[in-house]
């Protein structure tokens, strides 16, 4: 699926560091990617790989002591890193929306659904309450909530987890954003609900041409949903490319390890492959390639300097001196 559109959102050499007393944690360290209108980008990695921080950095929502120390976030050509808080506020929830991981926590427990939706509309549109409420009701209907008019007057605790995530998605859709950043929105849900929500998100974004950045650790979700995928490890994108190419022929040993650790039917009974070791602490990253201590291919050169980004194939990037050999994998 080759796309030639102008990038809607381009993240360039983004660096978000956490300046703590224990030292500097480079949560995001030189991340570059772009999304085109209507495209779904999967951002994959283990916990602590910096994928969520990347999402928050785009909207300027990184909490203290985190700070964007370098790079640019270009949204329709405008650099958001340099933009003021007022400008960011105009864009948040309006042109760029976000959906969070835990639906039980994203809605304010003491405010009614309609309050939380109407305020989202009226933060960006000069419409009266009745019109805002009508939009809220339509958005609830669009994400498949039955009897949206009645549900508007309910409180979050009267919804199930799946329904709450639909409400959060409806809030994200309210102002017809150009980009939606979804931070593991289906991780906390049942698989059946997960499938429904994935399907609906795909459909809604396809209809409106909204770009979707789907942050997840679940390769199965990415394979069914995304057009392209970026694999993050310790704050860097170690491999990226079209989703089919990356998942079928992984080049980075880390990607190969992730794919190998997904349980599947045809390896029933066999011992599940796992990546040895743990994600390194961001305060004590090894020199050179951050993955080398866990990497079966690592050589002496890996310790000297972090591998630079290379382009092994058209449309793919890689940071590795010793790429995974497909023959060896099989």
């Amino acid at each position: 699926m080759a796309r030639v559109e102008v990038p809607l959102l381009r993240v360039e050499q983004l660096q978000t560091h956490f300046l703590t007393q224990a030292g500097v944690a480079r949560a995001v360290d030189g991340v570059t990617f772009e999304v085109a209108p209507g495209e779904v980008l999967g951002l994959v990695g283990e916990s602590g790989s910096g994928k969520s921080v990347t999402g928050f950095s785009i909207l300027g929502l990184v909490d203290e002591p985190g700070r964007i120390v370098g790079g640019r976030v270009l949204f329709e050509g405008e650099n958001l890193v340099a933009a003021g808080e007022a400008r960011l506020r105009q864009l948040r929830g309006n042109r760029i929306a976000m959906i969070f991981q835990d639906p039980m926590m994203t809605l304010n427990p003491v405010l009614r659904i309609d309050t939380q939706m109407i305020e989202a509309v009226r933060a960006h549109r000069r419409v009266d309450r009745a019109e805002a409420r009508r939009r809220a009701r339509d958005a609830l209907g669009r994400v498949g909530i039955p009897a949206p008019e009645e549900r508007l007057s309910a409180y979050p605790h009267q919804f199930s987890g799946g329904m709450r995530q639909r409400v959060a998605i409806a809030i994200a859709l309210l102002n017809e954003p150009r980009v939606i950043i979804a931070d593991e929105p289906t991780t906390a849900l049942d698989v059946t609900i997960q499938a429904q929500i994935l399907y609906e998100m795909q459909k809604l974004c396809g209809e409106t041409g909204t770009a979707l950045i789907w942050i997840t650790h679940d390769l199965a979700v990415v394979s069914g949903l995304a057009d392209r995928v970026c694999v993050m490890y310790a704050g860097r994108i170690v491999e990226s490319g079209p989703v089919d190419a990356v998942l079928d022929r992984p080049l980075h040993p880390y990607t190969a390890g992730l794919i190998g650790s997904v349980p599947s039917r045809n390896r029933r009974g066999a011992r599940l492959a796992q990546i040895p070791g743990m994600t390194p602490s961001l305060f004590a990253l090894p020199s050179g390639c951050a993955f080398r201590a866990r990497c079966p291919n690592a050589g002496e050169d890996c310790a000297r300097e972090a591998p630079p980004e290379s382009v092994p194939e058209v449309g793919r990037t890689l940071r590795c001196y010793h790429p995974w050999q497909a023959e060896r994998a099989s």
Partner: peptide, 12 residues
């Protein structure tokens, strides 16, 4: 999260 989500909605 709901406070961060409120900010992500673009509220003042």
């Amino acid at each position: 999260d709901y406070v961060k989500f409120a900010r992500a909605k673009g509220l003042s």
